[in-house]
């Protein structure tokens, strides 16, 4: 084990890749939230609720396919680089968010919703002021799960030329340099922790006081 190489990797070789990796996580995560959250909300509306089972089955199936296979499927259409990696990672991040959005909103008790409606709140007011706020903790768990998942999975982007921290780790694998693997993994672990903490902080600001 060459500690100088380890430190060099950590401090000099990795930083540009950290930024690439952050992009590979934040872009798919953002897209996944934009897609999966509305899907989840729609599937809790009375008129669409009956489709929830089928949509979730599709998303569940998507989750069981290994991420590498998802990337491989898109290779012929999208070629190599950042874009196919983002698409594969987005698909991968959808399920936990959609599932927890549905679970969170459905967990709000019927009595509370009935009371809110009975007091004369409009459907929109019931949704934003009651269902969403009370479901938020569970929804946020889904987003955090996807975030941590994506930080790890995004390593594979390097295999299709999407760069990121995967570039460091796979270099270590190809050239038998455990220092690179170790340093890369360490950074990814830290990134996952930091992202999770940041999201928890954001949640704290949005949540009503007693749910914190």
């Amino acid at each position: 084990m060459d500690s100088q190489l380890f430190l060099d990797t950590l401090l000099q070789r990795s930083p540009p890749h950290i930024l690439e990796h952050a992009r590979l996580v934040l872009v798919p995560l953002g897209l996944a939230v934009l897609l999966a959250f509305p899907i989840g909300v729609f599937l809790t509306r009375p008129q669409y609720r009956r489709y929830a089972g089928r949509v979730m089955a599709v998303l569940n199936a998507g989750q069981t396919v290994p991420p590498l296979a998802v990337i491989a499927v898109f290779l012929p259409f999208l070629g190599l680089g950042f874009r196919p990696a983002v698409i594969a990672l987005t698909i991968y991040a959808l399920l936990p968010i959609a599932r927890n959005t549905i679970a969170g909103i459905s967990s709000v008790s019927e009595d509370v919703k009935e009371a809110a409606r009975g007091m004369g709140m409009t459907p929109w007011e019931v949704f934003t002021q009651v269902e969403l706020l009370l479901g938020l903790p569970v929804i946020m768990v889904g987003i955090k799960t996807s975030a941590v998942l994506t930080v790890g999975t995004a390593v594979l982007a390097a295999l299709v030329g999407g760069r990121g921290m995967g570039a460091v780790i796979f270099a270590g694998i190809n050239f038998f340099r455990p220092e690179l693997i170790l340093a890369g993994t360490l950074i990814i672990g830290l990134m996952a922790i930091i992202l999770e903490r940041l999201l928890t902080l954001a949640e704290w600001f949005i949540l009503p006081r007693h749910l914190r």
Binding site: D111, V112, E114, M119, G120, T122, V130, L134
Partner: peptide
């Protein structure tokens, strides 16, 4: 319907206070 309900006092069977308020 929303205006109607604002003008009628309603005490529901399970009380239904908003837990986050």
């Amino acid at each position: 319907p929303d205006h109607l309900r604002r003008g009628i006092g309603y005490v529901i069977q399970q009380i239904g206070l908003l837990p986050h308020r």
